[in-house]
Simulated scan of single mutants.
Amino acid sequence: MSASIRSATVRFGDTVALADVTVDIPDGRIVAVVGGDGAGKSTMLRALAREVALDSGILRSPSKSDIGYLPAGPGSWAALTVRENLDFVAGIYGLSGPELTERREAMIERAGLAIAADRVAAALSGGMRRKLAAAMAMIHRPTLLILDEPSTGVDPVSRIDLWRMISETAADGAAVIMSTTYLDEAERAAHLVILDDGHILTQGSFDDVRDGFDGTVTHGPDPVRAEWSWRRGRERHEYWPPGSQPDQNVQAIGAPDLEDIVIALSLRRQLTTGADR
């Protein structure tokens, strides 16, 4: 096991960013973390990257030299070319000479950046720049790869390239944890963690999360209880927790998708515990 956090709590003043969170990141697997704004995703990743100290709990994580960390944002130096960005980061990790050249060119090829290798990062498209940042996090072959929303705002083709790079890194044996706003990516991960306001709502494989979801989600043109509902396209979806009886004027959804599950579990926590958002 390359990394884990056990009963981890992180506070920023009076705000609890993580509350008794336990997650394992096994070697060779991808763990996806999802949740709304303020859920605690970035805080958990920064704790694993040793950028944020735990107030309580246990952190098991490699030394910084064995971690690849891609924070939210561009993740590269705008005035440097693709090759210069990779050379600079590789040098920090002690790579030089033929080994550096070999890894740099391999990462450029994997990221589909060969046509832009001598272009400054500021001149890259958003998708290209994010792929460069991912390549910079991977170039030293870390045992733990941490990616904070690597594909947010990236075009569909670049998303495919990024996912391939991430999957190949896991296949090579690295433990990978990533936050994502794209639930189709989360469904492909080996392990899924759903966070809300610093608390884990559920975790496991996508099948585990789906099979363990209780209650009923219905759909219809108008909500019966507005506080338990949300818009999906032209309809309103509504969550009925275990023990509640769906209204006869709405129709149950046979198998809620991950988006419905995430929203329903978040609503249940907020409305049953009085949690603030």
Results as ranks from 00 to 15, higher is better:
residue 4 S to Y: 12
residue 6 R to D: 02
residue 7 S to G: 06
residue 8 A to Q: 13
residue 9 T to H: 05
residue 16 V to R: 13
residue 16 V to D: 11
residue 17 A to I: 04
residue 19 A to N: 15
residue 28 G to N: 07
residue 29 R to C: 05
residue 30 I to Q: 05
residue 30 I to A: 06
residue 30 I to N: 11
residue 32 A to M: 01
residue 34 V to R: 09
residue 35 G to K: 09
residue 37 D to K: 13
residue 39 A to Y: 07
residue 41 K to D: 03
residue 43 T to V: 12
residue 43 T to D: 06
residue 48 L to I: 07
residue 50 R to E: 09
residue 51 E to V: 06
residue 51 E to I: 01
residue 52 V to R: 01
residue 55 D to W: 05
residue 56 S to L: 02
residue 62 P to N: 15
residue 64 K to V: 14
residue 66 D to M: 09
residue 67 I to V: 14
residue 68 G to I: 13
residue 68 G to H: 11
residue 69 Y to R: 03
residue 69 Y to P: 05
residue 70 L to S: 01
residue 70 L to T: 03
residue 72 A to S: 05
residue 73 G to Y: 11
residue 74 P to I: 02
residue 77 W to F: 15
residue 80 L to K: 09
residue 81 T to E: 11
residue 86 L to G: 11
residue 86 L to S: 10
residue 88 F to W: 12
residue 89 V to T: 15
residue 91 G to K: 04
residue 98 P to W: 02
residue 98 P to M: 03
residue 99 E to T: 10
residue 102 E to C: 02
residue 102 E to N: 14
residue 103 R to Q: 09
residue 104 R to C: 02
residue 104 R to E: 08
residue 110 R to F: 02
residue 110 R to N: 06
residue 114 A to T: 13
residue 118 D to L: 03
residue 118 D to G: 02
residue 122 A to Q: 15
residue 128 M to S: 10
residue 136 M to Q: 15
residue 139 I to K: 10
residue 139 I to S: 11
residue 140 H to Q: 13
residue 140 H to I: 07
residue 141 R to M: 02
residue 145 L to K: 12
residue 147 L to E: 10
residue 148 D to T: 08
residue 150 P to V: 05
residue 152 T to C: 00
residue 153 G to N: 05
residue 155 D to L: 13
residue 164 R to Q: 08
residue 165 M to R: 15
residue 166 I to P: 03
residue 167 S to N: 05
residue 168 E to Q: 12
residue 171 A to R: 15
residue 175 A to P: 08
residue 177 I to R: 04
residue 178 M to Q: 13
residue 180 T to E: 01
residue 183 L to G: 14
residue 185 E to P: 07
residue 189 A to G: 09
residue 189 A to N: 04
residue 191 H to A: 01
residue 191 H to Y: 14
residue 192 L to E: 00
residue 193 V to R: 07
residue 193 V to H: 11
residue 197 D to C: 10
residue 201 L to A: 03
residue 201 L to K: 05
residue 207 D to P: 00
residue 211 D to C: 01
residue 211 D to H: 14
residue 212 G to A: 05
residue 216 T to A: 05
residue 216 T to G: 01
residue 216 T to Y: 06
residue 218 T to Q: 07
residue 218 T to K: 11
residue 218 T to Y: 09
residue 222 D to E: 12
residue 222 D to I: 02
residue 223 P to W: 10
residue 225 R to H: 13
residue 236 R to D: 05
residue 238 E to S: 04
residue 241 P to K: 12
residue 246 P to Q: 10
residue 248 Q to Y: 00
residue 249 N to L: 04
residue 252 A to P: 15
residue 255 A to H: 10
residue 260 D to Q: 12
residue 261 I to E: 08
residue 269 R to F: 08
residue 271 L to H: 12
residue 272 T to F: 01
residue 276 D to W: 03
residue 276 D to Q: 11
residue 277 R to K: 09
